[in-house]
Nucleic acid binder design. Structure first.
Length: 200
DNA sequence: CATAGGATCGCCT
DNA sequence: GGCGATCCTATGT
């Protein structure tokens, strides 16, 4: 079932980031839906987090979405090339977000391969923050600031339970500039999506 | 208006 | 493992 507002509006973004591992990201467009299990996330803890775009309460046209209500998408362009997909959490006014960094497709693999223009195997076709947006057809121009409670992009709980032992928890990637916050254990990664979610 | 740099990826060696 | 691609955002004048 689709995650509701209660899931997103909680205060602990690190906990939400942890719980999103094993949930299912769904994207629907042109009457076609693709679904993929979330395998990697990072928490971004708003104004107190030097790695966050909203650090220090910085409000710009771009970051404004994170200050808005929860359960919405924050999709921005990275390195001029990649759309990166985030989920806005906590209450309006508190700019928390979770970056989705990797997924394992379970439905619509043919569409996903076409989107990527690649026949990479399932466990590698969307195992990166820029790869998964391209794979699922998420674009910063079309999919920014959408409600995750509507029918374009949403996240489902399909009862998949991922125990702590299957996770690797450590520092976030590519945020060396964030000084002491660069070492916070805000990254959650499933150690073996292929073995856990693959066939056989 | 100009400019530096980024929550990355894929190709090359 | 090194590097270029590629362009928007934020900041400063």
């Amino acid at each position: 079932m689709k995650l509701g507002i209660d899931f997103y509006e909680r205060e602990n973004v690190v906990q939400i980031s942890r719980e999103l591992i094993g949930k299912v990201l769904c994207v629907s467009e042109h009457d076609q839906t693709v679904k993929a299990i979330i395998t990697e996330t990072e928490a971004y803890e708003g104004v107190t987090d030097k790695a966050s775009h909203a650090y220090g309460g910085r409000r710009t046209d771009r970051t404004e979405i994170m200050f808005g209500p929860p359960a919405r998408s924050y999709v921005y362009l990275c390195y001029g090339v990649h759309s990166l997909f985030n989920v806005v959490t906590n209450k309006e006014g508190i700019p928390h977000a979770v970056l989705i960094r990797g997924v394992y497709p379970i439905s619509g693999l043919d569409i996903i391969q076409a989107n990527r223009n690649s026949k990479e195997p399932t466990h590698r076709i969307a195992n990166g923050p820029g790869k998964l947006t391209k794979a699922l057809g998420i674009h910063y121009r079309n999919h920014n600031d959408l409600s995750l409670l509507a029918d374009s992009i949403w996240i489902e709980d399909q009862g998949i339970h991922v125990p702590d032992g299957e996770l690797q928890i450590g520092p976030r990637i590519g945020i060396d500039y964030a000084e002491e916050d660069a070492l916070l254990p805000y990254r959650f990664l499933h150690k073996d999506p292929k073995g856990r979610f693959g066939k056989g």
